[in-house]
Design a protein around this nucleic acid. Structure first.
Lengths: 224, 224
DNA sequence: TGTAAAAACCAATTGCATATTGGGTTGGGT
DNA sequence: ACCCAACCCAATATGCAATTGGTTTTTACA
């Protein structure tokens, strides 16, 4: 902490914070304006603000303003940052960590209509005439399982994960045959997942999804 | 599919897509410009584009443009939308689904320095003189566990989850006593989590984190 | 001469008007 | 009946001036 702090100014600022009616986002008036209304210089105010920032009472950001409370972690537009930071194996690891839990929640919470939709997606994926359409139905299958968890936040996180996955694997379809072979490993795995969800078997759904993604991971490694 | 499709125009468009040098985001020229350069009408082009969009070859968005490939799910992690849609119980459910898996990965992957930092956060949380500082160290403990997973995507998802959590629980500290009581339930639970991570016990870390969050959940219910 | 305050400058961000883009309709021509 | 050109609308992007925090320079005073 800076020892040159002006204590009367700091007390004025604390008094302001204790009594001010601030907007919902906790934004303080601009420094120039606040200095004037507290009848102190801006440089003095800035020192007092720096003290309060070090205590976690306020946070400041160039161009945005000064706000009460702790600085939020910056997550807006973080998808691009995530994409830059990660790689296909991390994406697989995150899926293996996350999606079995989503399947578990789906087994506990899915409506009958959602179970039927999950089955439909699985069948459509098996019957898909091209890899592109197989991927579309595969994506829809996984997302419908996320919807069936009945937890909008889990679904939001799953969508974030899939957005990163697609960005990381962009262009990956170029060198594949026309459609998946009839013995494509995911088909049997999908059947097990969907069966467990339909049976309301949470642990079974968790294990089946985990086996599926481990299998996807090892195929990815062999193709590496 | 629309049966009024103009096949020569569709072939012209496919030919364009096969040979064009497009920017990295796969953006096509604006419709008016593309219609001119292909020497077809804009309405005809729009029909051809609609056909390709139905096949998943391109996607279009008012005001943005036309792009190759499938329509991405909203790629900006829209934290505000998640916050509006969810509630504290969903947040708890998502944490219970997600954070034990993060603890499992941390037990397998943490460096020695990270284990030491995790311990430090735990001790600092126990010694915190105010609830505000306890929360700061608690947040840091959970985030350090996320870092220790050595998976930047898992960490990104955890940050997203915590950003939503903070927004949903905004202002929750107002009516609490000065500091956590010495027998605050989380203290013993933190010890178990940190012990399991330090012991490299993945299943133990998973179970300890799950018990901790279930305990937080039931305290939340009783307080509700 | 040293210090504090005021003024000026810089980088990051916001707000707003205008331009652009896809979506669609209308009228005229073949 | 269909296509084309022109036009309109809603969503989005772009560019620029204003705003905001961060810092340096200048000025005034003791």
């Amino acid at each position: 902490m800076d020892e040159n702090i002006d204590l009367p100014a700091l007390e004025k600022l604390r008094g302001f914070l204790a009594s001010a009616q601030l907007p919902d986002d906790g934004r303080l008036p601009p420094e120039r304006e606040l200095a004037q209304s507290l009848d102190i210089g801006r440089a003095v105010l800035r020192k007092a603000l720096a003290t309060l920032q070090a205590e976690g009472v306020v946070w400041r950001h160039v161009g945005k303003g000064t706000f009460t409370g702790e600085r939020p972690i910056d997550t807006v537009a973080d998808i691009n940052a995530m994409v830059q930071r990660t790689n296909p194996f991390e994406v697989m690891g995150a899926r293996i960590a996350f999606e079995p839990e989503v399947a578990r929640c789906a087994a506990l919470n899915a409506t009958g209509a959602q179970v039927a939709e999950i089955r439909n997606c699985m069948l459509k994926a098996q019957q898909a005439p091209t890899w592109r359409q197989y991927e579309q139905w595969d994506n829809k299958l996984h997302r419908t399982i996320g919807e069936a968890s009945q937890n909008s936040l889990l679904l939001g996180l799953l969508d974030t994960l899939n957005a990163v996955r697609r960005a990381v694997t962009w262009g990956r379809l170029r060198d594949t045959p026309v459609r998946p072979p009839a013995d494509h490993h995911s088909f049997a795995e999908h059947i097990e997942i969907v069966q467990a969800i339909g049976d309301r078997d949470a642990a079974g759904a968790y294990e089946a999804m985990r086996r599926h993604l481990r299998s996807v991971e090892s195929h990815m490694r062999n193709r590496g």
